[in-house]
Design a protein around this nucleic acid. Structure first.
Length: 426
RNA sequence: GGAUGAGUGGCCGAGCGGUUUAAGGCGCACGCCUGGAAAGCGUGUUGACAGCAAUGUCUCGCAGGUUCGAAUCCUGUCUCAUCCGCCA
């Protein structure tokens, strides 16, 4: 959420970013609404002051035995007027809030102008795609032939866009998650968290999924309207909701391995086969809560943490900076990591690392007390480190052998009980 | 899921319609005092909004309502505690 005071003073910037993001300019409307609200507020405050004075005088009159009747008459005038203005102010405030909370975050100066994902800018490439002397198979074919991926069963149980893995492949996914968690906690300084994956609408609002993007979330019929998290960013970042911590406590660095649930509402017909786009997948998520001056560095750090996983797995990837038309609602700057998938002969997203600045912190009232004793909003960042299901896909496709077996990456072998190759079940 | 009770400032805790500008205490900060400290005394000590400022307004879990006036009365809601039930 943007600060209305800031909007008032930076209307050109607001409109410029709206256009860059492919939306219509809106600042003029906001400024008019805000002026009206402040005007009513001014009148209201004068009347409230009058009411306070009268109320005090009535109290004194009653205690000293003076006749309070004339004061009562005045109060009967002022009271309803105050109430009327309070109603007006409340309505104007609510109306303005609807608009302000629908505004996306401002963009970092480095974010390139662009319409969609085709205009994202590659910032680096790592590793060289392997030369195959046979036709590499897609992960779903490999998995089914190994007898360890079963989309038919998944569909019977839950419908389309769900997965069923078993045996060594199921263990490989767990190994990947453990490897990621161990790396982030032991080497990168993150604290492992095991958070709820059912959250309240207030939490979804805090991280920006609500109110605009509720269509992609799964709801429960629970009386509290609990929702399934689309990412662990939601519970991890909401740790800070309605909280003020000391500067010394910063930064907070959390990571969690959780299932994520998404309706994939807008992606009918895309990636219909396999594990790439499913309603439920596992992800290791990193979240950082940092001092405003440190958030740029924190984003680079987190991106390195995510890239480090693929480097250790020795799988090629490239990193892109999202352009203005592709960047998410809450983010001021985002890097995607795209992993090489030989069967698709292309790079596919496996991680997204964003600096949200104070945008989420404002929504969820997350602050710290600075050295001068002033409360300031924290900056929040989140990044996948990594999407575990998609990493499994990448391992399968990049490490496949001609006979359909899959070599286990060296760093994962300890997690697989020393096993080096996954082969078809007899 | 049922019953009962409770939510007040950094913390404890009083207040149950108008003298509340939220008593009192603790903690913390600054000052006086002191050779230095402790004690003592004094001052300050939630956050947000409007305003250039002086100031003003709001904030007693949250949201409504009653009233000329609400921390106080009413309704809803959330959280916590205790007991019962159910349960991996």
């Amino acid at each position: 959420m943007l600060d209305i005071k800031w909007i008032r003073e930076n209307t050109e910037t607001v409109d410029k970013v709206m256009v860059m993001r492919g939306a219509a300019p809106i600042s003029e409307k906001l400024v008019v609404m805000d002026e009206k609200r402040r005007d009513v507020m001014g009148k209201l405050q004068i009347l409230q002051a009058k009411r306070n004075t009268l109320s005090k005088e009535i109290g004194q009159a009653k205690s000293t035995g003076v006749d309070a009747a004339p004061l009562f008459e005045q109060m009967k005038q002022v009271g309803p007027q105050v109430k009327d203005l309070e109603d007006q102010e409340r309505n104007l405030q609510a109306e303005l809030k609807l608009f302000v909370e629908a505004l996306p975050n401002m963009l970092d100066a480095e974010v390139p102008l662009g319409k969609d994902e085709d205009e994202n800018v590659e910032v680096r490439k790592w590793g060289t795609p392997r030369e195959f002397n046979f036709e590499p198979q897609a992960h779903y074919d490999l998995g089914e032939k190994l007898g360890q991926l079963d989309f038919e069963t998944a569909a019977k149980i839950s419908g389309s866009r769900f997965s069923w893995s078993q045996g060594d492949l199921a263990r490989l996914e767990r190994s990947l998650a453990m490897f990621m968690l161990d790396t982030h906690t032991q080497e990168n300084g993150f604290t492992e968290v095991n958070p709820p994956v059912l959250v309240t609408p207030a939490s979804m609002y805090g991280t920006g999924q609500l109110p605009k993007f509720g269509d992609d979330a799964f709801y429960t019929n629970d009386e509290r309207d609990l929702m399934l998290v689309p990412t662990a960013e939601v519970p991890l970042t909401n740790y800070m909701r309605d909280k003020t911590i000391t500067e010394a406590e910063l930064p907070l660095k959390f990571c969690a391995w959780t299932p994520c649930f998404r309706k994939e509402a807008g992606s009918a017909g895309r990636d219909t086969r396999g594990l790439i786009r499913v309603h439920q997948f596992n992800k290791v998520e990193m979240v950082q809560i940092v001092h405003p001056e440190k958030s740029d560095a924190a984003l680079s750090f987190m991106l390195n943490c995510a890239e480090g996983i693929l480097q250790k797995l020795e799988i090629p990837f490239r990193t892109v900076m999202l352009c203005s038309g592709d960047i998410g609602f809450c983010a001021r700057k985002t890097f995607d990591i795209e992993v090489w998938l030989p069967a698709q002969d292309t790079y596919r997203e496996i991680s997204s690392c964003s600096n949200c600045g104070d945008f989420q912190a404002r929504r969820m009232n997350a602050k710290f007390k600075d050295a001068d004793g002033k409360n300031q909003f924290v900056h929040t960042l989140n990044g996948s480190g990594l999407a575990v299901g998609r990493t499994l896909v990448a391992v399968m496709e990049n490490y496949q052998n001609e006979d359909g077996s899959i070599t286990i990456p060296t760093v994962l072998q300890p997690y697989m009980g020393g096993k080096k190759v996954i082969e078809a079940v007899k």
